[in-house]
Design a protein around this nucleic acid. Structure first.
Length: 316
DNA sequence: TTCTCTTCGCGTCACGTAAA
DNA sequence: TTTACGTGACGCGAAGAGAA
């Protein structure tokens, strides 16, 4: 199942063999109950230190086969960020310090990518989530997801694959019922952004990453929630007035502030979603790593047992 | 069936960091 | 210095599980 085991053995060997920073719970019991063994290799003699303080000098009795986890040819240092270590004895007084540490922790993408550079079996987090975003920059044709969205007031907006978007929504009353929106690719837009123009209507629909920003010519600035049938995620529509139809400068300023705030919230919403996704991936990766290290620990213990048996057998 | 608890995901705020 | 971004923390609601 886990093909990453062998590739990760080398990199994480030091940690488990020397009782490194990671506090792993073995399947046999707690780390304190499992034997702690340190190996010191000199030129020809290997000193095996047992948990009871006893040391066993082994003079090259056997050569561990190449597959042995002890004979790791290229041991790499695995960066274990100390922030990951959870210390149950942390006092309340250290909360602030801990917060500082946590806030300076590199992003999950960075951590995972570092891990993956140590061991290629660890999947990298892609720079961008390409699964649900439209590669507008790579291709002039834009594929709009075939989705039906529902606003918070129960209105439906259908997005069809032939780039037309028939709308039957009072939310866009200026469109007078069913209209088709043509998709235009703004040269200045972001790669994943799409502008929609509603026929001859001055209304512009700005679609980015599942979010729709509607520029309305008239009316208030209601906020709508969109629901994609493919996901349960509620997505918001922000209606922003076009600059051609402004009232007093003060209200214009207020609306500008409101619009900026809505855009910021929308972006932050997306960012939070992405951050959670990365965090989940990161946690999954750590869990895999724990499993691998536990496995290694087990193997090392068995190997040590075998070595002891051989040694005792020879000593007799 | 109803209530309670737990888990999960979301949106928002606050803050730190890196880039412009 | 400003801006954009990433992320921890917090609160909320929905969904599921278990008990009464």
């Amino acid at each position: 199942m886990d093909t990453s085991v062998s590739s990760q053995l080398d990199s994480s060997l030091q940690d488990s063999a020397t009782g490194g920073e990671e506090n792993l719970s073995d399947s046999n019991g707690s780390p304190s109950s499992s034997p702690q063994v340190s190996l010191e290799t000199e030129s020809t003699v290997t000193v095996v230190q047992l948990p009871d303080g006893q040391t066993l000098p082994i003079q090259r009795v056997i050569q561990a086969p190449q597959t042995s986890v002890i004979q790791a040819p290229q041991v790499q240092n695995v960066q274990i960020t100390p922030e990951i270590k959870l210390d149950g004895e942390q006092s309340v007084a250290d909360t602030q310090k801990r917060r500082e540490i946590l806030s300076r922790r590199p992003s999950y993408r960075k951590i995972l990518n570092e891990l993956s550079s140590d061991s290629p079996a660890v999947a990298k987090i892609e720079e961008e989530t390409a699964e649900d975003e439209v590669p507008a920059s790579s291709s002039p044709s834009i594929s709009v997801p075939n989705s039906i969205y529902q606003s918070s007031s129960g209105q439906y907006i259908a997005v069809t694959q032939d780039r037309g978007i028939p709308l039957t929504s009072p939310a866009v009353e200026a469109l007078h019922g069913v209209q088709t929106l043509t998709v235009t690719n703004s040269p200045t837009s972001q790669p994943t952004a799409t502008f929609l123009q509603a026929g001859e209507s001055p209304q512009q629909f700005y679609i980015h990453g599942g979010q729709v920003l509607i520029q309305a010519a008239t009316g208030d600035i209601p906020a709508y929630q969109l629901r994609s049938p493919n996901s349960s995620l509620a997505q918001s529509i922000v209606l922003a007035e076009s600059p051609s139809n402004m009232q007093s400068p003060s209200s214009q300023h207020a609306e500008e502030i409101t619009r900026k705030r809505e855009v910021r919230l929308m972006k932050n919403r997306e960012a939070a979603r992405e951050c959670r996704r990365k965090k989940k991936e990161y946690v999954k990766c750590l869990e895999n790593r724990v499993a691998v290290l536990e496995n290694q620990n087990k193997t090392l213990i068995e190997e040590l047992k075998a070595l002891k048996d051989i040694y005792c057998h020879k000593a007799e």
